[in-house]
Design a protein around this nucleic acid. Sequence first.
RNA 1: GGGCCGCUAGCUCAGUCGGUAGAGCAACGCCCUUUUAAGGCGUGGGUACCGGGUUCGAAUCCCGGGCGGCUCACCA
Length: 524
Amino acid sequence: MESRDAVHWADQTALKIIKEHGDKEQYTCASGITPSGTVHIGNFREIISVDLVVRALRALGKKVRFIYSWDDYDVFRKVPVNMPDQETLAKHLRMPITMVPDTFGRDSSYARHHEVDVESILPAVGIKPEFLYQAERYRASTYAEGMRKALEKREVLKGILDKYRDEDHKIQGDYWPISVFCDACDRDTTEIEGWDGEWGVSYSCECGHRETVDLRKAKGVKLSWRVDWPMRWAYEGVDFEPAGKDHHSQGGSFDTSKHVVEDVYGRKPPTTFRYDFIGIKGTPGKMSSSKGKVVDLYDLLRVYTPELARYLFAGTRPNTEFTISFDLDVIKIYEDYDRTERIYWGTEQAKDEETRSRERRIYELSQVDEVPAKMPYQVAFRHLCSLLQINLGDVEKTLAQLPGVEEHQLDRLRVRAKCAWTWITESAPDEFRWALREDGSAIEANEEERAALVELRETVRAGGLDEQALGTKIFDIAKAHGLEPKDFFKVTYRALIDRDRGPRLAGFILEVGAERIVKILSAY
RNA sequence: GGGCCGCUAGCUCAGUCGGUAGAGCAACGCCCUUUUAAGGCGUGGGUACCGGGUUCGAAUCCCGGGCGGCUCACCA
């Protein structure tokens, strides 16, 4: 941060954390999710929000422990429609997701599959948390003390939970803050029978199994969600954790957890904020998204470079809803980012000082690692799309055509070009997509039109004209053959790219190169 | 029933220590003879949902109301 005033929400949050939890050497920031299905882009908002705050704290010279909890000891309660082998999955309902098989056949379990997906892509956007696996921890009885504490204070817990329930929904009968996966059948179809006041818990299962287990050795006992969360806050000493709006509501899980961590575990609740959901506009890829297709970080990174992906989130306040677009808006997002980049590097003036420092900060936070030593090469996304189509998607060839590219700028350009090509071929509106007519075919044209095309061909063959001169010449040709310029343009675009309109013609012809243009127009 | 969020230009929205209302798109105009726009430059355009209050001053803070949306109370 260059300015003392926190202009960015992540910096403001960092200051708030320090204010609420005191000036410490190290802070713990947490995020987490249940890998019960594809971890989609909405889930990603939480982790990147934490990452941005973590970076803000570090910018203030603080050490930060960034933990990401995989809640893989949660129950598998329904089969998502986008998963293969639905029958096999259905057979494992009510078991912990860590015991459900990976029906893709790739990883050791259903949960692990989704974890691996996320863990392998996060470094690409510069996010490197410490992963915690709750199944492993519960099975190792890591939380025995926490569970016993909950049992001891179960009346307090009951009171907290009941506070927000109406008369019809108050907890009936015995309340147990724990649930058990049966040791015989692995399902949570169990009922707590009793607790001996110390470590012993008895349960019975629908499968007929019943036993008394010791919390210090049992692997199937876990806390219910609204107690589990605050217990872990206390266990890890969490200073900051945001939550989605489904949790952040009076009587919601964050709210009750706040009371639980204070009244039962004697710890101050973490600083937090609420993040909104995000929407999707356009289609990220060819697949029709009817069958439970969800957009994830992989989809995002096929169209947006890592910096752009971060930029989407860094540039938007967490508590506002926004949509991630795969349609025409993509161009605008790239343009916005490029402008932010120019402001950072001082090649464009910001409207005022405040805008400048905010844009600079957003730019910093959008980088995967450090801000590069020199300014990256800028090529407008739109123009890049044109060039790629001229070169049939050949990235290296396209980059070689860009004037003045330096070695250190190539990597980013390459990534951008790949994204542009994916966008053009899979997400862009049809009007944006074209290919040069290089199969030797000719369009139907009358005498005058053919003659004009031939003259254009010879003009191009002769060469020696710059864009402006060629542009003027095109009009001359049209006139000389008694054609309205408008109609001649149309005919030319038809001949070249089989569309009624296209990129600004003169420049386009020069970019394609005389040789290819002449070849295409040799059909007349 | 509780809680939260939003209501600013035709559209999408920015603008949270209160200080002359902004951007993009759309529209319109011009681009050195004629110009296809996926180019350049420029212009116009707002009763800030309504009503009160605080203030020298309110889009911004407070109260009341309206409309739209979300969320919780069952599970995570």
